[in-house]
């Protein structure tokens, strides 16, 4: 393995962050037909970070490879990743089936091994299942160090310094490659794709694989019994001035 960075960026296609999801009539999931999908915002940040690491020092990075596990349409977001700077990509087409983080991590492990990846950058969580699992699981399976919720990444040689967002502020950890990083919101601001780059991305390699190409059992460990609306808050009142607000708060024993 060369000492250069061989970055793998797993990305997920999710319902656009600005859309309020609707629960299906059967109460078994979220309505997906006719809904706008986009790249998971944290994955977008992961792609951006990989590209910025290369832009900071071209000699550092050998390759940036994007991978997505999802329906056929996930190739749209892979093209986007390549328009932003990924060199190549893999789509693991699993149809409409939702795959749990543990299985995703197992598939990613095999993709990482095949690609000789030594740095994997993922989003900290997908905004649909909100699990915040995959990066940590992948690190566990590979027995690599992990730096989650990254706010700052500095690569020097085979050492990576990561500033992480934690509950009371920040902490900095240092690890040696190979390692896993998951991105927090403030790591960077992702760029937009330009039309010329989008055209170029169409020529970049997109490998299409199926679940059966992997030796992974994706049987669900968590059985979904029900999906329901959260409790609806009762309509509140509007007050017209501060005095009313204060007396209302006193009535409610809130102050």
């Amino acid at each position: 393995m060369s000492s250069k960075l061989n970055i793998l960026v797993p990305v997920k296609r999710v319902i656009d962050f600005a859309i309020k999801p609707r629960i299906n009539k059967a109460g078994t999931g979220i309505e997906k037909a006719g809904v706008k999908f986009s790249i998971n915002p944290f994955c977008d940040i992961a792609v951006e970070e990989a590209v910025r690491i290369r832009e900071a020092d071209k000699s550092l990075v050998d390759k940036i490879h994007a991978v997505s596990i999802g329906p056929t349409k996930s190739q749209d977001i892979l093209r986007q990743c390549m328009a932003k700077g990924a060199d190549s990509s893999t789509l693991v087409d699993v149809g409409e089936e939702e795959i749990e983080p543990l299985s995703v991590a197992k598939i990613l492990k095999q993709v990482a091994e095949k690609n000789n990846s030594n740095l994997i950058i993922l989003g900290k969580q997908a905004i649909d299942d909100d699990s915040n699992n995959t990066g940590q699981m992948l690190a566990g399976l590979l027995n690599w160090p992990q730096a989650t919720n990254a706010a700052k990444v500095e690569v020097s040689g085979d050492e990576v310094l990561v500033t992480r967002e934690i509950d009371g502020g920040e902490e900095t950890v240092k690890a040696k490659l190979p390692m896993i990083i998951t991105t927090d919101l403030r790591l960077n601001e992702p760029r937009y794709t330009t039309l010329p780059n989008m055209m170029k991305a169409k020529k970049k390699p997109l490998e299409k694989l199926k679940l059966k190409d992997f030796d992974v059992d994706v049987t669900k460990r968590l059985e979904v019994l029900k999906v329901e609306e959260p409790p609806v808050r009762e309509a509140g009142i509007k007050v017209s001035n501060v005095d009313e607000l204060v007396s209302k708060l006193k009535d409610l024993k809130a102050i």
């Binding site: 999801p21 979220i30 749990e100 909100d130 460990r221 059985e223």
Partner: peptide, 30 residues
């Protein structure tokens, strides 16, 4: 497969957790 961020214990195997930024609550059985 862990069950992240549970908000309710239904029984020893069954939990409620929010998904989609709390816009839906899923009940899962491990």
């Amino acid at each position: 497969q862990p069950v992240s961020d549970i908000i309710k214990v239904e029984d020893a195997q069954t939990f409620k957790r929010p998904i989609y930024a709390g816009n839906a609550i899923v009940t899962v059985k491990s």
